[in-house]
């Protein structure tokens, strides 16, 4: 060190403050998600493994949902809304869900603005314009992290059962959070709050 060491003013209080900020960021990340699990409305989505042999990448399971593809009448309102605008990339989309007779929730409406009522998930559409026929929506629930002990068991069950039910907790702003795995009404995995 060629230059003389100079004291940094207020460095210890600043370090305490920085610690508080970093810990608060982590705590906020945790609590914002735990709150959804605790208080959020529940919907049940069907999930289908596209290729069961490719379920596990690293330590997470890739989940796909039929509800990610939006077509027909549900999409019509959205394309009418979007038709006026430029084609968008990574467009925020709100999809309203209602329970069907089999207990699975299905998309019934989609909108570019936050709905006033109903249970809705907030997702992102990679591409949207007025002529979109099938819209792909990413709800941010496509990954399920698990450890190497639980993963093979989970994978085997999903492979044997084909379709799986995923219970999603939905926050007030439409953020989805995976809450539990079910297969034929039997709960396989329930996520802890913390």
């Amino acid at each position: 060190m060629a230059e003389p060491a100079r004291a940094k003013p207020f460095v210890v209080p600043a370090a305490v403050a920085a610690t508080a900020v970093l810990c608060a960021i982590l705590a906020w990340m945790i609590e914002s998600r735990a709150q959804i699990l605790r208080e959020g409305a529940e919907i049940v989505l069907k999930s289908e493994p596209i290729d069961p042999r490719d379920l596990l990448r690293g330590h997470y399971v890739v989940l796909t949902y039929p509800a990610q593809q939006i077509t027909g009448d549900v999409l019509a309102g959205l394309t009418a809304e979007a038709g006026m605008r430029e084609p968008g990339r990574d467009v925020p989309v709100y999809v309203t869900f209602e329970a069907g007779p089999d207990g699975h929730h299905r998309p019934v409406a989609a909108s570019l603005t936050k709905p006033d009522e109903g249970i809705f998930l907030r997702g992102t559409a990679p591409y949207l314009d007025g002529r979109t026929v099938t819209l792909f929506v990413d709800y941010g629930i496509g990954r399920f992290y698990t450890n190497e002990h639980r993963a093979p068991e989970l994978e085997a069950r999903m492979r044997a059962g084909g379709l799986t039910e995923i219970v999603i907790a939905v926050g007030a702003d439409g953020t989805g959070q995976i809450k539990a795995f079910r297969q034929a009404g039997e709960t396989i995995v329930t996520e802890p709050l913390y």
């Binding site: 990340m29 945790i30 998600r33 941010g140 629930i141 990954r143 399920f144 992290y145 959070q177 995976i178």
Partner: peptide, 8 residues
């Protein structure tokens, strides 16, 4: 935390 809550 990303792992705990399966953050995308």
């Amino acid at each position: 935390v990303g792992q705990m809550y399966h953050l995308p």
